[in-house]
């Protein structure tokens, strides 16, 4: 009960930023060319997909749900996008709309079924994970589709900023997401439902539309992520983003989002994404072996969450 009261996002974000700087420091010392502008530009151009998915995941976690289908939804959206562009000669704009619509529909289905039929979202989205992945393979005929340079306007670095439009979209999603979560009726109800569903119902609010909306937002963001993913690689890959739901959940959890609902902050989630990405990039730049990469990434996730939990316990005791 005390959780909500002691949760101060600013303090936590300061902690996450410290972790981030520490990581950069470690990689800066141990790797020759890590601390340089191109590294950070390159990280910026790598992360839009995970950022978008993690923002969507934050909304679903905040209402006390979970979305395991995000990776598959991303893959299905990018598959629809790629096939429309390469085999049906659609232009970039309508294909992008179709891509985002695909993601939104998956999210809508997740939300509608789990909320209206009162089935735990864990199960519904687990089903969607399989359905969307299977559909992806049907759409692409299990073949990697090479899109080519049509998507360059999304992924090519902008002249002065050196970052891609995809990154700007992701940053916008973070800012807009945080605004929606903390300043709008929809966002406040999301947090309220996640904190105490009964109380919100008792006060006469019809919560179902808000809950379904949260899943839909998550699906739409996966659709946008599908767009940036396909653009980044110039391909629609049937195996895209396998396991990305877990990275997104990890980013949310590092950012202090509660898996029980009611607590979450989009900016903190973004810091979680940055920690994961810096770790990935730094370890690859050092040429660390694959097993050690996994061990290190797992350890950092646990340490980050552990330190936050301890800090919160101390501050609530003192």
């Amino acid at each position: 009960m005390n959780m909500l009261g002691t949760f101060k996002p600013q303090k936590q974000q300061a902690g996450l930023t410290a972790v981030l700087i520490l990581l950069c420091g470690i990689f800066g010392v141990s790797s020759e060319n890590f601390l340089a502008t191109p590294t950070f530009i390159s990280i910026a151009n790598q992360i839009p997909d995970l950022t978008l998915v993690a923002v969507g995941m934050t909304f679903v976690l905040v209402i006390g749900g979970i979305d395991l289908s995000t990776g598959s939804t991303l893959a299905l959206s990018s598959a629809v996008f790629g096939v429309l562009l390469t085999e049906h000669d659609w232009t970039l704009f309508p294909a992008s709309i179709a891509c985002i619509a695909t993601g939104s529909l998956c999210g809508l289905a997740n939300g509608f079924i789990s909320i209206k039929a009162r089935i735990p979202s864990f199960i519904v989205t687990l089903g969607m994970l399989e359905i969307a992945r299977g559909a992806t393979k049907v759409v692409t005929q299990s073949q990697t589709k090479y899109i080519g340079s049509i998507t360059d306007p999304i992924s090519d670095p902008l002249p002065v900023l050196s970052v891609s439009p995809a990154f700007l979209v992701a940053v916008f999603a973070v800012i807009a997401g945080q605004f929606v979560l903390s300043k709008t009726v929809f966002g406040r109800y999301c947090i309220a439902v996640g904190t105490n569903e009964e109380a919100v119902i008792m006060s006469g609010v019809r919560i179902a539309p808000y809950q379904i909306m949260a899943f839909c937002v998550c699906g739409a963001l996966c659709g946008i992520a599908g767009l940036t993913h396909a653009a980044k690689l110039s391909t629609a890959d049937p195996n895209a983003a396998i396991g990305m739901e877990l990275s997104a959940i990890a980013a949310c959890v590092i950012g202090g989002t509660s898996l029980m609902g009611g607590r979450g902050n989009v900016i903190s989630t973004f810091l979680g994404v940055l920690i994961i990405s810096v770790l990935q990039t730094g370890l690859a730049q050092l040429g660390v072996s694959e097993p050690m990469k996994q061990v290190t990434t797992g350890s950092v996730i646990i340490i980050a969450v552990l330190s936050d939990a301890l800090r919160r316990r101390w501050s609530s005791n003192g």
Partner: peptide, 25 residues
């Protein structure tokens, strides 16, 4: 100069190659 596993995956190969390219100009 570097030999790393990208698990047969496109996106992982993308991340790792970006890092290798920066480390080895």
């Amino acid at each position: 100069v570097s030999s790393q596993s990208a698990d047969w995956e496109t996106n992982k190969a993308n991340t790792i190659t970006s890092s290798i390219l920066r480390e080895h100009p």
